[in-house]
Nucleic acid binder design. Structure first.
Lengths: 347, 347
DNA sequence: TTGTAGGCGTTATCAG
DNA sequence: CTGATAACGCCTACAA
């Protein structure tokens, strides 16, 4: 067992209260210099350090933030979202001397089961990263009395605090950009409906159409999945190409880069030249976006900044400085590369 | 404040002892089924979950493992060692329901300062990743009574438990491979001396020379740095090329891929063809090793497996099943690509 | 300036 | 089978 405050008190011939006072050095707590010296020396001699747990229990504060995230892939660190997000969070915690505890499970169901015993007392607050909209986790979290914040999710709930990219704005900008190039028929390849980002990006797509006076054509909007799955866009691409040329879209807004890259492959298979015959724009700007041919035009999320902002905001929230329902939406940025161009001229 | 065990006891009309018994469900602790039911329902009704901190204090076990690591780069997750290592550790912790708390600081000095208050009680054990040999951190750690284990470091200390790649063996294999190709003069570009791996790889280099009856030539061994620093190998390369052709080495064993890649650049600048005029072998097998031309022959460390093994072993150590001084050295594997070939024939 | 004592929320060891 | 009660190690009024 480690040495406790009692040993130090005995060694320094004072009470444990005095030891505590000296070692916590509050300005108000006045201790005679000689006593202070005795205590410090005793602590040093005995190699004493206060127990974080006991202190946490007494103070009700652990200086620890929990990250709740789930991932199926074997690697967290190389996940294009989780990785940078983690980096941003860690940077802030490093600066503010907060410990970061990772609560990783293989499913939200499993997370749900173990979460309460984990975060109760253990963490001062929770950062919930990319939750599924269909998971009961948010409800469970609300039951615990721990402050928490959603990262990469900005669902429309007046009670939740969120930090996310401005998906609606980003979707609108992407489509505006395509419209600006001259495109008039633009398809949308959506992501998983369990992430609220997909619906929001679609809303941006809709808004851009509306403001440009373009008709919103539901047959141009296809469901899809954010996760890499080679060939998953074949059907959607084929459906587009099956249309008469005059009704065929000249651009595709893919809701993330996985989708975009798969779409590129599908188009190549069908002999469609990108960007000459079809423009493709992605979302995220993953590393692979520059490795593909043609290099992908895409909407870059400031993921690391989202992580940093989330960490900052949660700390503020723990200190009671955040209004419930606050949503911080960070702007995205269009990175123009080679997969977009004006539409082909009809001859 | 969250609801405590007392409320549940009151609600269920039993003592807190009984609540604790029911909720921890030990086989020995026998509670009447009817009582059990009452307690469970009360807990459910009140939305009660035990406090991990209080439990930790009482049990002396937090089910939490601390990772001590320092990094200067802004990104942990994309670090070619830290990333995979983290993945391996997290995978094991996920399986064994251990929480992982990251203790990241910007320097070992800073880590040293905050470490005691952090890990005392907070963590059941510590994984210390890539410590510097000149840091006092190991001594400080020994002072705390927390079990710990070194990852990516297998220094020669009879008290320390370590998990690492077998650097000596890997260095020996790399040089054996070059000798097998016909090389007789092989240079070594070392890493930072503050990592014990560098000295160990050099020892392997030495052993391979000895067993082949080759003279160990100190002028062929150059100091260097593991960290990316374009141009840092220029001087070493030039020193090699300045030698008379007959004394010039025909191969270079670089102690990591950063060094190898920089060496490739330096050689190209001097118009030396790789591998025709000079073979180059690296260490680590980072992603960039395949992106460079010629693709790098290198020694692959099983980093993820090291992380997994370390997590496993620490858990065993916490449970008292590990002898002090135990060293687990995992084998490396040579990945042959395009940067090595037999030496040029003298004409 | 210093000490006493109660509390933080559990677990675990006793009796009963 | 169940209930007091003493740890666990620290903080912090309140007294002295």
């Amino acid at each position: 067992m480690a040495v406790s405050i009692y040993e130090v008190a005995t060694e320094a011939r004072v009470s444990i209260a005095t030891v505590s006072r000296v070692l916590n050095g509050r300005p108000s707590a006045q201790v005679a210099p000689a006593t202070q010296k005795r205590v410090r020396e005793a602590a040093l001699r005995l190699d004493y350090y206060p127990s974080g747990v006991a202190r946490g229990l007494a103070r009700g504060r652990m200086n620890t933030i929990g990250l709740v995230l789930y991932y199926e892939q074997p690697s967290v660190t190389s996940d294009p979202y989780l990785g940078p997000c983690l980096d941003g969070i860690l940077a802030v915690h490093k600066r503010d001397h907060q410990n970061t505890v990772l609560f990783t499970k293989s499913s939200w169901a499993e997370a749900l089961e173990h979460l309460p015993s984990f975060c109760n007392g253990h963490c001062d607050g929770l950062l919930v990263i990319l939750p599924h909209t269909d998971s009961a986790i948010i409800g469970a979290l609300a039951g615990l009395k721990v402050p928490f914040l959603l990262v990469g999710d900005s669902r429309d709930d007046p009670d939740l605090v969120c930090v996310d990219v401005d998906n609606v704005g980003a979707g609108r900008d992407a489509v505006r950009y395509l419209i600006g190039l001259g495109h008039r028929r633009i398809a949308a390849f959506c992501g998983n409906a369990i992430f609220c980002s997909s619906g929001q990006r679609l809303e941006g797509y809709r808004q851009a159409h509306e403001e440009a006076g373009l008709l919103y054509d539901p047959s141009l909007v296809r469901d899809g999945s954010y996760f890499p799955a080679p060939g998953s866009c074949d059907a959607s691409v084929r459906a587009l190409l099956d249309r008469p040329l005059a009704e065929r879209p000249t651009a595709i807004f893919c809701f993330n880069d996985n989708i975009a890259i798969d779409t590129l492959h599908a188009l190549r298979k069908h002999g469609i030249a990108v960007p000459q015959e079809m423009s493709v724009i992605g979302f995220d700007d993953v590393p692979a976006a520059t490795a593909v041919h043609p290099a992908l035009t895409t909407v870059r999320q400031p993921i690391r900044a989202i992580g940093e902002r989330a960490a900052d905001l949660l700390l503020a929230q723990i200190n009671g400085a955040v209004v419930p329902g606050q949503k911080d939406l960070l702007p995205a940025q269009i990175i123009v590369r080679e997969s977009t161009s004006p539409p082909p001229k009809l001859e």
